[in-house]
């Protein structure tokens, strides 16, 4: 998650745009036009970083307020904000 602070010269305005990393799932019927779907997302502020064409996912970032709008793009089936994942070792000392 990244906060982008925009300050206006007058000093009267200060705007904080919170950007989040997102994963955008593409429906089966849109697999053949995944780049068009990516372009439609970009026009809504999606910063497209990579295309996982094998599993039909676009990875990138967007303003937090734009996440809901991305879900309205034809061909998009789910948009989720990235979570941090950790290794799955138990938080206890190992027993030899």
């Amino acid at each position: 998650m990244t906060d982008i602070v925009i300050s206006y010269p007058s000093g009267r305005w200060r705007c904080v745009v919170r950007r989040v990393k997102v994963a955008v799932a593409i429906g089966e019927d849109a697999f053949g036009r995944i780049q068009q779907v990516a372009e439609a997302c970009r026009q809504l502020g999606f910063e497209h970083e990579s295309t996982l064409s094998g599993v039909g996912v676009l990875v990138g970032s967007a303003a937090a307020d734009d996440v809901a709008r991305l879900r309205t793009v034809p061909g998009v089936t789910a948009v989720e904000v990235e979570r941090d994942l950790r290794h799955g070792r138990a938080p206890r000392p190992a027993r030899a």
């Binding site: 990393k21 970083e49 996982l52 990875v59 994942l85 950790r86």
Partner: peptide, 14 residues
């Protein structure tokens, strides 16, 4: 020991 969904999804795709 930590990562993100995006990296994991990229790994699955690979």
């Amino acid at each position: 020991g930590s990562g993100t969904d995006g990296d994991v999804l990229a790994g699955i795709d690979w």
